[in-house]
Amino acid sequence: MRTSLLNRTHGTRNTRTLARTALTLASAAALTVGLASTASAATANRTVTDGTRTYNLALTAPNTAPATGANVTVTGSGYNPDQGVYVGLCAIPAGVNTADPTTWNSKPTPCLGGQDETGTTGASHWVNSDWYWMSPSNSSPFTESGGLGSFSVQIHVKAKISDTVTCGRSGVTCAIVTRADHFDSSDRKYDVYVPVTFQ
């Protein structure tokens, strides 16, 4: 009887010990991930006027990533929900100073995955409130509040954008960006850049 009780007691203690260890490890892992995400994120801001309304755009994305590739979360707020945007990784065009929005006059290109309207690469996300249902694998509507649009999406980034363009080589610098979608691709008002360095 004592042996049986002892075994049960030790079994309970072992189970509790294992559970505590697992909880401690999970908490540590969550803390590490949280710190890494916070430490490696940056926010870019831009104020634009579209029609009669002013929008204070904010784009938050990681500013470092592994060269081999990673899925990253990108968030935005203050956008015009009537103007769809692409979220993706692009080369920063010549003449664009990411610290000076007045220089953001050239379309961010080339971009990883190109203009991925079908969502086959996972390298870009199309945020729009009218036609998102056309591309369910990589598109979603804005979350709207008070006439402003926000989003939180995941995209895949890596240093090699194409066979001839690699971020960090031959003078190529890259950023996670938003830009007006293919319905208004010449509109530069919604270009916002968060520069990213690949390690």
Rank of each mutant, 00 (worst) to 15 (best):
C90T: 12
N71H: 01
L112P: 01
D116E: 12
A22W: 00
T60E: 03
A123N: 13
D116V: 12
V33C: 01
V96Q: 06
S37D: 14
L57Y: 02
S37C: 09
T54V: 10
P101I: 10
V48F: 04
R20D: 12
T102Y: 03
L59S: 01
N105E: 05
P66T: 08
L23V: 14
S37N: 15
A94T: 14
P101K: 09
V127E: 02
Q115D: 14
A29I: 12
A28C: 06
T102E: 03
T75C: 09
G78C: 06
W126I: 00
S37W: 03
E117W: 11
A65N: 09
R53V: 14
A26V: 12
A91M: 10
S27G: 13
A70R: 07
E117M: 11
D82T: 13
N71C: 00
N97R: 04
R53W: 00
H125T: 06
V72K: 09
S124R: 15
D130E: 11
G76L: 10
P108I: 10
L89R: 09
S40T: 15
T102L: 08
V96W: 05
K107Y: 09
A94N: 13
T24W: 01
N71W: 05
D100L: 08
T47Q: 11
A70I: 05
T38G: 08
A58Q: 14
A61Y: 04
G34K: 03
S129D: 07
L31T: 15
E117H: 05
V72A: 07
T68K: 03
A58W: 00
A123I: 00
T75L: 06
L23N: 11
N80P: 03
A41W: 04
L57P: 05
V96A: 07
G51K: 03
A61M: 06
D50Y: 10
C111E: 07
T54Y: 01
A44E: 04
T120D: 11
W126A: 00
L23G: 02
S40V: 12
P81A: 09
A44S: 15
N63R: 12
T103Y: 05
K107G: 01
L89D: 06
D50E: 12
L112S: 12
T73D: 09
T49M: 05
L89S: 05
D50S: 15
G76P: 12
C90K: 11
